[in-house]
């Protein structure tokens, strides 16, 4: 059984997620929500004090992987195969960014994910994402 809330201290404390400061927020049967706290080192340029696009991509990639494990109800090694992010607008100045990804379909070897990033209002997203992940080794549970 994979519990994203319980696994987050382990998954998000080190490496790239730890450097970004990613934090668990919420989850449902097939979705996971993470937060990316604003800090100066994550700024994209000197003019606007907003989080760069790179960290948002990273957060959505991570939330997508966790959504796959949440839906499969177990940890399975996955690798992102293809991921697209459309940046609809810059995040607010000094705003934390929230990323919510849903795994809407799994097959024997692939998992399909979509998600959004926002800075407070999910109906006014900062970015949307679509991605395909491949499972490595064991297949996720299919329904």
């Amino acid at each position: 059984m994979f519990d994203p809330a319980a696994a987050s201290p382990f998954l998000l404390s080190g490496g790239h997620p730890g450097w970004l400061g990613l934090a668990y927020r919420d989850h449902g049967p097939d979705w996971v929500e993470l937060a990316l706290p604003w800090r100066e080192e994550l700024m994209g340029d000197d003019v606007r004090r907003v989080i760069a696009s790179g960290p948002i991509f990273s957060m959505l990639d991570m939330a997508g992987g966790m959504a796959i494990w949440t839906r499969a109800q177990r940890f399975v090694p996955v690798a992102t195969l293809d991921m697209r992010v459309d940046y609809q607008r810059p995040a607010g100045e000094r705003a934390d960014v929230i990323g919510r990804c849903e795994c809407y379909r799994t097959t024997r070897s692939a998992a399909f994910v979509r998600g959004i990033a926002h800075d407070g209002d999910p109906d006014d997203p900062v970015a949307t994402m679509a991605a395909v992940y491949m499972t490595i080794g064991g297949a996720p549970k299919n329904d």
């Binding site: 080190g14 490496g15 790239h16 997620p17 970004l20 991509f57 990273s58 990639d61 991570m62 090694p77």
Partner: peptide, 14 residues
Amino acid sequence: EGRPGHFHGGATSG
């Protein structure tokens, strides 16, 4: 680092 010993996809993308 993402998976131990490997790049996180987000870092590669960044």
